[in-house]
Design a protein around this nucleic acid. Structure first.
Lengths: 139, 139
DNA sequence: TTTCTAATTAGCCAAACGACTAATTATCTA
DNA sequence: TAGATAATTAGTCGTTTGGCTAATTAGAAA
């Protein structure tokens, strides 16, 4: 029961359910890509991913400076709950929007994505002052 | 997604998962019986049951002074998630203990059960002072 | 009608949760 | 080796959650 409860708690949060659901479509995503989708701080996305990994729902793989996450399809993994979740999530508007947003994110290289995230972080409230040249770059 | 999230949040609590799980075995239980199982106040059990009903996981039926709860097996109900949950819960020790405890609870009439709960409430810390005659009745 | 009672709602409090920034760790590269 | 960088951990803060008691509601029975 404790393990089951851990999985349910892990999925009982909007952001984590979004992470879980996009991973049914993209198979493997980098922390910085998920961060971009959720529009939260790096620390926040890291904690959410940690909770999903601890619950046994995701696996992570480190490659150079990046960490990649996939669904954990092991015997105690996600296969069966997916049968319940997938039909409910696929038709949902916010999830569809996530899929489309992720298509755009995946079209950008991780290097560019992370550079952009760094620049956004440097002075969130006054981008026009400290980084005037990037001001209108986000199409 | 919102409805799915509501169901996940409803099940992501130990006491509510216990309620859900015993209802796979007993089909229909009264609020006071569930209260006895969880050993919480009436207000607490009522709120947990309300959350499960709001999420669409349980249905309730009022009969005279008692309210009975069952799993909501409707088309948007619990059928599919049960396939995921049941095998995980059935083998679990605390759930087995709940089944046995509930056997004992069901052996008592609701009238006796509720009277006992009322008496326990009257002076939780000092039963031997205010209700000496019930002191050793709990076998 | 009045009284009793099972359940719910209101209001309160401590603990848990989710977000952030700052500091740290691990890894690449100049 | 020193500097840069993606991710994680530590620490803080406001919100939510889960428990309680007290008050209220709905239904039975005297």
């Amino acid at each position: 029961m404790e393990k089951t409860l851990l999985k349910l708690k892990a999925l009982a949060d909007g952001n984590r359910l979004r992470i879980f659901s996009v991973l049914t479509r993209y198979e493997e995503l980098c922390a910085c890509q998920i961060r971009e989708l959720l529009q939260v701080s790096g620390a926040t996305v890291s904690r959410h991913l940690g909770i999903l990994v601890t619950a046994g729902l995701l696996k992570s793989r480190k490659e150079s400076r990046w960490v990649y996450f996939t669904l954990d399809g092991g015997c105690d993994g996600v296969d069966n709950i997916l049968e319940w979740l997938l039909p409910r999530l696929q038709g949902s508007d916010p999830i569809q929007a996530d899929f489309e947003a992720l298509d755009r994110i995946m079209a950008v290289s991780k290097e560019d994505l992370c550079r952009q995230q760094r620049e956004e972080m440097c002075c969130p409230q006054q981008k026009e002052i400290c980084c005037p040249e990037q001001k209108n770059e986000q199409t």
